[in-house]
Simulated scan of single mutants.
Amino acid sequence: MRTILIVDDEPRTRLGIKKALDIWAAGNYRIECVDSGVQALEWLSRETAHLLITDVCMPEVSGLDLIHALRDHQMKPVAIVISGHAEFEYVQTALRYGAVNYLLKPIEKQELLEVVTQALKQEEDRHRIERMEKLVDPKLLALEDQNVRLCQQVKEAAEYIENHLDEPLTLAFLAERLHMNASYFSVLFKEQMGIPFTEYLTRRRIQRAKELLLQTRLPVGEISERVGYQTDKYFIKVFKQQEKLSPSRYRQEISGNSGSIH
């Protein structure tokens, strides 16, 4: 369930927004309120909000301070700011800080619901893009464009790797298969691919592992075998080096525990 956090030091505005959103959400969203920027920062240090609705002018920590403080937050919410007509310059600053929309007081219910719906759609789209970026290896993606310019031997090597990731592949084995000197093949491969053979093989294996983690419910140990690692312990170590988190954690974060990308 996605969460909307309302931050406003005026009880009437804060509770009015909450009441309107509670009726609109019909239990499909969690609606939370705090009455200051200080409380919002404390709340966000232990909870996750997908949408932040914040007043601009508040004591101690303003809405601008709040949005600015969250710019590098790992789970940064999309933000809507609330402002009076006389504070419009603050709204412009908030938009530069990353707010996606604004509401002017007094807030009309229909406009509130329209702006909230748009913001949640943007949050969903952003999250989907972030998930896709974590699925695709940028170096391998860049290599796709230059594949047509590869020499025949390197093309054959890449195709063989792709179709035999579960096997104990080595540079020497592929060089022999291609009837090439191993040292020459090593230099040629790096020259054409832009990365060494070992790094390419590792990235291909981890890429396949990510696909299996998201598209199947296979246990990590079986996935490890399918991408050519003899022990799941070593596979987990390499995966963490590449993706900065374990295979199990990756599956949870990217798929949202669903086992697939929707």
Rank of each mutant, 00 (worst) to 15 (best):
F197V: 05
R126E: 08
E111F: 05
T198W: 13
V220D: 03
I53M: 00
V56Q: 01
Y229T: 05
Q207D: 09
Y200G: 03
T231L: 03
C151V: 11
G27Q: 06
P59M: 13
Y234H: 14
V34I: 07
S224D: 03
I80D: 00
L113A: 04
Q92R: 12
L135C: 08
K19G: 04
S260W: 11
L188N: 04
Q110L: 13
L213N: 02
L95Y: 03
A142I: 13
I161H: 02
N181I: 12
S260M: 14
Q152G: 03
D9P: 02
G259Y: 15
K139R: 12
Y250H: 07
Y160P: 05
E87M: 08
Q92A: 14
H68V: 04
N147C: 06
L171T: 10
K210Y: 06
A49P: 05
A79P: 00
F173E: 14
A86Y: 10
G98E: 01
L21K: 00
D22Y: 05
L165T: 11
C33S: 06
V100M: 01
V38E: 04
Q122N: 07
S36L: 08
A99L: 00
N101S: 09
F185D: 03
L104K: 04
L64P: 01
A79H: 00
S45V: 10
V220I: 14
S246C: 05
L113Y: 06
L41I: 09
L104F: 13
A86T: 15
P11D: 13
V7A: 01
Y97F: 13
F239T: 02
C151P: 06
D35H: 07
Y229E: 04
L135Q: 11
I206D: 01
L112I: 11
Q118E: 12
L213S: 02
I4D: 00
D166R: 07
H262C: 12
G98T: 02
T93R: 06
G256M: 14
Q153D: 15
I4W: 00
E60F: 14
L70S: 00
P196K: 05
V7M: 02
N163E: 15
L245C: 10
K19L: 13
P219E: 09
K134L: 09
S246T: 10
I6S: 01
E32G: 02
L113V: 10
R12A: 11
K190I: 08
A26E: 14
Q215C: 15
A157Q: 06
E123D: 14
A79E: 00
K155D: 07
T202A: 07
P59T: 14
P247N: 04
L95P: 01
V187I: 12
L41M: 11
K240D: 05
S186H: 15
D55A: 04
F88T: 15
E144I: 12
E10Q: 11
H73Y: 05
G259D: 10
A172F: 11
I254G: 02
G16L: 03
E211K: 08
M180F: 12
D137P: 08
D72V: 09
A40L: 03
I223V: 08
S45E: 13
G256P: 12
L5W: 01
T117N: 07
T170K: 07
K233V: 13
T198Q: 15
T231A: 06
S186V: 07
R131V: 15
Y229L: 09
T231D: 08
P77H: 00
S246H: 06
K134G: 07
E114S: 06
D72T: 14
E162W: 07
L21W: 02
